[in-house]
């Protein structure tokens, strides 16, 4: 079943970093920019801000890399979830993630990814410019994203990256 995903529209983003703050506060009760599951890359030179966050890949490299088999797809959906009890914090999935979206949680000493706040992402709620949206895959932004990758890398990359909206 297709789940809603998080999308970021770089042209609307002001780079205020609110999403990072609320994410860290919600998940760890403290603010630490390394704890946030979403990262805003602030790039003044290119006049833009980009968000890096778990894309919920269909065939996720992190799942394949995990030494402890702790990462799996939530049954009945395609959200990547983790069993943190068995995680040994080896950070292999952090290395494997082609999107740089796995986050090492320094409190638990384990790697985490965006869990979409159980279906009600706080970052979306707090985003002042609606640059972050929570929507079904296959919308306009998703198609554009695919197209861009297709143009640049050819189809082969799509196979690896498994962009979320491939069918949509």
């Amino acid at each position: 079943m297709k789940q809603k995903r998080l999308y970021h529209n770089a042209s609307l983003c002001d780079g205020c970093g609110l999403c990072q703050l609320v994410c860290a506060l919600e998940h760890c009760g403290q603010w630490n920019h390394y704890q946030s599951r979403i990262k805003i890359v602030n790039d003044m030179e290119r006049e833009a801000f980009y968000a890096v966050c778990c894309t919920q890949c269909e065939e996720a490299p992190c799942i394949l890399t995990c030494l402890m088999n702790t990462i799996y797809k939530q049954p009945g959906s395609d959200i990547t979830v983790r069993d943190l009890y068995h995680c040994i914090g080896c950070r292999a999935c952090e290395l494997a993630c082609p999107f740089d979206a796995a986050v090492f949680d320094v409190i638990q000493e384990k790697v985490v990814n965006c869990d979409l706040c159980g279906g009600r992402p706080l970052c979306v709620e707090y985003c002042p410019n609606h640059a972050l949206t929570y929507d079904y895959p296959g919308d306009q932004a998703d198609k554009k994203r695919n197209q861009a990758a297709l143009q640049r890398f050819g189809t082969s990359l799509l196979e690896v990256f498994k962009f979320s909206g491939k069918e949509g």
């Binding site: 506060l25 919600e26 009760g29 403290q30 603010w31 630490n32 390394y34 706080l122």
Partner: peptide
Amino acid sequence: GSKPIVPADPQGVLELSAKGQKLIK
């Protein structure tokens, strides 16, 4: 730096921040 800033009541901070956002808007 990447040390944490720990609020006494994170939930309260989140709620008041949402309220502040609404007020300013």
